[in-house]
C-alpha cells in the first residue's frame, strides 16, 4: 500500500523529508564517516517514517472523506 502512494508522491520530496526528519534523530554527533550504526539508524528511521507517512495519509484522507459526506 505504501508503494502505490509512494508512486503518487513526489519522490524527491519524500527523500528530502526522510532526510530532514531522520538526520536530527540519527546524527546528534556528526562523525567523519557514514558508519554501520549510522546506516542502521537511517534504515530504521526510514522504515518508521514511511510507516508514519502511510498512517497519516490514511487517517487524513479518511477524515477528509468523512467530513465531505456531511454536506
Amino acid at each position: 500500500q505504501v508503494k502505490s502512494e509512494m508512486a503518487l508522491a513526489n519522490a524527491q520530496e519524500l527523500i528530502n523529508k526522510i532526510n530532514n526528519n531522520c538526520f536530527n534523530l540519527c546524527f546528534q554527533n556528526i562523525g567523519p564517516s557514514f558508519s554501520n550504526n549510522d546506516q542502521k539508524c537511517v534504515t530504521s528511521c526510514m522504515d518508521k517514517y514511511m510507516e508514519a507517512w502511510d498512517i497519516v495519509s490514511r487517517t487524513y484522507v479518511g477524515r477528509v472523506q468523512k467530513e465531505q459526506q456531511k454536506f
Binding site: I18, F23, P32
Partner: peptide
C-alpha cells in the same frame, strides 16, 4: 569547519542511501 564538511557529506550519504533503498524496494 570539519563539522560543517562532515555534516554535508553525511547529508549526501544519507540521501544516496535513502534513494538506493527506495529503488531496491520497488
Amino acid at each position: 569547519k570539519a563539522c560543517l564538511e562532515n555534516c554535508v557529506n553525511r547529508f549526501v550519504d544519507t540521501s544516496m542511501f535513502i534513494v538506493k533503498r527506495l529503488q531496491n524496494r520497488n
